[in-house]
């Protein structure tokens, strides 16, 4: 497709739906919207700790997430050595 390098292409954009648009307006609007959304998210992050402090009166106290410890049997050295001995015997062709 032949391309025509022209500044007019920026100011006169015809969308496939027939809308007449201006590239500069799209750029300005787009940047403003991206900044607006991220500024709002920033403001929300700033007030979040204060909000949580206020809500602490209503919300139950926060406990750190506790991960379940692995079952004791997984770490039992006796069971581990028994399993190792059985495996060794099996490899040696002994009784299983």
């Amino acid at each position: 497709m032949d391309r025509t390098f022209d500044l007019q292409n920026i100011t006169e954009v015809t969308a496939q739906n027939g809308d007449k648009l201006n590239g500069l307006a799209i750029t300005m609007t787009g940047m403003v919207i991206v900044f607006l959304a991220l500024v709002l998210i920033t403001l929300y992050i700033v007030i979040l700790p204060r909000l949580l402090k206020a809500l602490a009166l209503v919300l139950p106290p926060e406990h750190p997430a506790v991960k379940k410890p692995p079952r004791e049997t997984d770490r039992d050295p006796l069971i581990a050595s028994a399993a190792a001995a059985a495996w060794h015997q099996h490899r040696q062709g002994g009784p299983s």
């Binding site: 390098f5 500044l7 920026i10 496939q16």
Partner: peptide, 20 residues
């Protein structure tokens, strides 16, 4: 950093690509 998106959009329009 999203300025790169919109300035390139202008560049692509200048070259003659459609809006989409």
């Amino acid at each position: 950093a999203q300025m790169g998106i919109f300035l390139t959009l202008l560049g692509a329009l200048y070259i003659g690509f459609s809006g989409e």
